[in-house]
Design a protein around this nucleic acid. Structure first.
Length: 153
DNA sequence: GCCAACGTTGGC
DNA sequence: GCCAACGTTGGC
C-alpha cells in the first residue's frame, strides 16, 4: 500500500467533475511524462491512497482523497488523432502511455499550497521541492497521515 | 553521446 | 504575462 499525489487542472477535471462521474471514478488520461507514467505503470496498486490536487488554478491545493481502482492500462487518447493527447508514435501493439482509474473517496476542504508549505512536517514532500513539476509524485505514509489530520481542522 | 534550442509546467 | 526549472528533440 502506497500513497500518491496526483495533479489535475480543475478546468480539465475538477474534484466535482470526478464526483459527477459514474462510480465517482475517472480514467487519468493525458499524462505525457515518462516518470509520471512509470509511477502509474510500475508503482501503483489497487487500493493505493491518492491526494487529489488542483493545479494551474486560482487556489492550488489538495481538494480531496481518492484511491487507485485499476491497474495500469493504455491511455486511449494516445490513439485518437482528434485528441490533444494524440501521440503519432504510439501504436496499439506498442502503446507509450499508460493510466490508472482513480475513484474519489472524499471531497475535502481545500488544503492550499500555502498551508502545505507552512507545515514543517511536510517540508520534504516532493511536490513542495523547488522546481518540481511532476504531475504524479509519491507521498510518504507519515505525510499522508499528517495531511489527513490537517484536513479535519 | 553531447548539448543548444525549444517546449512545458505551474506558481505567482 | 513572467519566468525558473526541467524535459525533449535533433543535428552533429
Amino acid at each position: 500500500m502506497q500513497y500518491w499525489l496526483m495533479k489535475s487542472e480543475p478546468k480539465e477535471v475538477s474534484i466535482d467533475d470526478a464526483l459527477a462521474e459514474p462510480k465517482q471514478t475517472v480514467a487519468w488520461t493525458g499524462v505525457r511524462n515518462y516518470q509520471a507514467r512509470n509511477f502509474m505503470r510500475d508503482g501503483m496498486q489497487v487500493g493505493d491512497g491518492v491526494l487529489f490536487y488542483h493545479s494551474s488554478c486560482p487556489e492550488p491545493g489538495i481538494a480531496g482523497l481518492a484511491e487507485v481502482v485499476s491497474t495500469a492500462y493504455p491511455d486511449p487518447t494516445q490513439f485518437d488523432a482528434r485528441s490533444k493527447y494524440f501521440d503519432p508514435k504510439a501504436t496499439q501493439e506498442q502503446p507509450r502511455w499508460m493510466l490508472v482509474d482513480v475513484k474519489i473517496t472524499q471531497k475535502t476542504r481545500l488544503l492550499s499550497l500555502a498551508e502545505l508549505r507552512a507545515e514543517s512536517a511536510l517540508a520534504d514532500m516532493v511536490i513542495l521541492r523547488r522546481g518540481n513539476r511532476l504531475s504524479i509524485t509519491p507521498v510518504s505514509a507519515a505525510e499522508w497521515r499528517h495531511i489527513v489530520k490537517l484536513l479535519k481542522k
